[in-house]
Amino acid sequence: MQVEVSLTVNGKLYKQNVEPRMLLVQFLRDELRLTGTHIGCDTSSCGACTVLLDGKALKSCTMLAVQANGKSVKTIEGMAENGALHPLQEGFHQEHGLQCGFCTPGMIMTAADLLSHNPSPNEHEIREALEGNFCRCTGYHNIVKSVQYAANKMQAS
């Protein structure tokens, strides 16, 4: 059985027929080929699949594609605008906030949610906000600095 789903991803409207059991993350990766959103676990624990759903961070493995019907999704591929990196993307680069890069898209999307409601978080608030996202490479030290970099840059502009 297939069900029609219609949603906006990175500003573009998609209408497609999907299996009702298809997860949003599978829809993004397999149907739209937006493979920047990753799958790291089966239990919504790792955060590698985090996207923004109507502006709020969501682990896209916790939602069926059909549940996202009518909603607006932003993925890592939609963060840079007009060729300019988002301050978070820039921050992760400047502060060496990534190594293997696998958790990075999810980290950036989670941090984007944080900065949208707390534009100048302190270290503790950043660590609390990111505690749903695993990184096995960096020990989080430089990820915290990356988010601070972005916050400073966004505050300044």
Binding site: M79, F92, H93
Partner: peptide, 21 residues
């Protein structure tokens, strides 16, 4: 030196095995 490989990872353009079709 800032890492040259970062660009693809921070823009979602990394190419991991499971991304290959």
């Amino acid at each position: 030196v800032k890492r040259v490989e970062d660009k693809r990872f921070i823009t979602g353009k990394g190419r991991y095995t499971d991304d290959i079709v």
